[in-house]
């Protein structure tokens, strides 16, 4: 039997849209399926691994660099619940230094230690910062790292605007084998216009691969530092997330079309008509 493909999944989207929440749930579900999961936190906020490890003191790659001027796998890989390995890039205090360089440095460590190539993991999930502001933040989209990109959106205009920009980044990184897997709708507003997101997806030449709704249980789970898959395994949200996890695995990167992001002017013109 041919070696199974390593799933390299990247979540992007406007800040606060739900990337870390969804991705840590997906990690848990994949681990439950028996997959060997590596969760990579690429946001200098370093908040994503907290849900998976029950720890608030996850050592980051940047901290290791500061302390020892060197990064060792044993000191930055933290085994979370459900056997998920977690690693956090970490970064500077807000407003100083170069966070992008921190992420790039973590991926250099991946290469130095052959972390992704040793058949150690079959599912690697990258949790990125909201906006790709510079080349450093885009390093997870380089060859050999992230592959299937998912953009989390709501029906808010600015979240769609960010999604359109991210689709551009995906297109730029397409030569590295990066593909757009689709949009994930996270409708935190009960009155949200779900169809609008569908129309927008079609304009980008992509699909909505999953739709989550506002669920107070998610918030409660978060306060308990648990994923909803652990906190409320039988909830409708967990079921939705499970379907999303399956859908992501089924996507064949070779068959995914290149996205067709809009230029800013067209975006604003079409947004006036609800992307109809």
């Amino acid at each position: 039997m041919a070696a199974a493909r390593v799933e390299r999944i990247v979540f992007l989207g406007k800040g606060g849209i739900g990337k870390s929440t969804i991705l840590s749930n997906l990690s848990t579900l994949y681990a439950r399926m028996g997959r060997r999961v590596l969760f990579v936190g690429c946001d200098p906020k370093r908040d994503a691994t907290m849900l998976l490890t029950s720890r608030t003191d996850v050592p980051t790659v940047v901290e290791q660099l500061i302390r020892h001027n060197d990064v060792r796998a044993e000191s930055v890989l933290v085994r979370g619940r459900a056997g998920i390995d977690c690693i956090e890039a970490g970064g500077p205090e807000p407003g100083v230094g170069c966070a992008g360089r921190g992420i790039a440095r973590m991926l250099e460590f991946f290469q130095e230690s052959d972390l992704l190539a040793k058949n150690r993991y079959d599912t690697v999930l990258f949790d990125l910062l909201g906006d790709i502001v510079c080349g450093g933040f885009a390093t997870p989209l380089r060859r050999g790292f992230g592959q299937k990109v998912f953009i989390v959106v709501s029906d808010e205009l600015m979240s769609l605007y960010a999604a359109n920009n991210i689709a551009r980044a995906v297109l730029n990184c397409a030569p590295n084998g990066v593909v757009l897997g689709g949009l994930v709708a996270n409708l935190k507003d009960v009155t949200a216009d779900e169809k609008l997101i569908g129309r927008f997806a079609r304009l980008l030449h992509t699909k909505v691969v999953g739709t989550l709704r506002r669920d107070p249980a998610l918030r409660r789970a978060e306060f308990k530092r648990l994923t909803i898959a652990e906190y409320a395994p039988r909830s409708p949200t967990t079921a939705t997330l499970r379907r999303l996890a399956q859908a992501i695995l089924k996507l064949d990167p070779k068959k995914l079309p290149a996205p067709t992001p809009l230029d800013d002017r067209t975006f604003y013109d079409l947004s006036r008509r609800g992307f109809a």
């Binding site: 660099l65 500061i66 001027n69 970064g91 230094g97 360089r101 440095r105």
Partner: peptide, 12 residues
């Protein structure tokens, strides 16, 4: 400045 200072900022 070493890598870590570049990431976390060198002003400090």
């Amino acid at each position: 400045l070493r890598d870590a200072h570049i990431i976390t900022g060198g002003t400090a």
